[in-house]
Amino acid sequence: MSKKTLTLMSKDKQLFNIEEHLAVQSVTIRNMVKEDGASSVIPLPRVDSETLALVIEYLNRQQAPEEDEDYVKKFVDERGEIPTLLELAQAALDLDIKKLMDAACMKVADLIKDFTLEEVREALRIENDRTPEEEKAIRDEFQWAF
């Protein structure tokens, strides 16, 4: 029996092929396949091609179930850049791949754990939306935060 192949399309219109039995680790894809057979291309409008390549690499892994935990951890560890991890987490969220998302979020949390606030903002590209006065008021409040 020949294995059925699905085609995924990234935000920048690149196509990726993946075998169906591997792709259905994503709950989102599984539901799509169930509904309409997914004969055509599955578009993923929020995932760019680099991230999708990573997700495909992850889905294509050939690990025994007992080694899987370690593999996910290592997989994420090797891509220890916060922007990459966030993209990956977001893609995993969209595709509903729980293990990958958990691992990516855990890694991000580990990385920013010891950051200063400024570093957190920089790493996650969050703008500080407070005026210096507000900032000071809150700092005073949390000086004795516990």
Partner: peptide, 26 residues
């Protein structure tokens, strides 16, 4: 970042860091 991801990441941090992180943005 979608709120779901932010909540997921924040909830994995130590409590003291979460308290600090309230200052990151509104």
């Amino acid at each position: 970042l979608p709120a779901e991801l932010t909540i997921d990441i924040l909830s994995r941090l130590p409590v003291k860091t979460i308290v600090d992180c309230k200052r990151v943005c509104k």
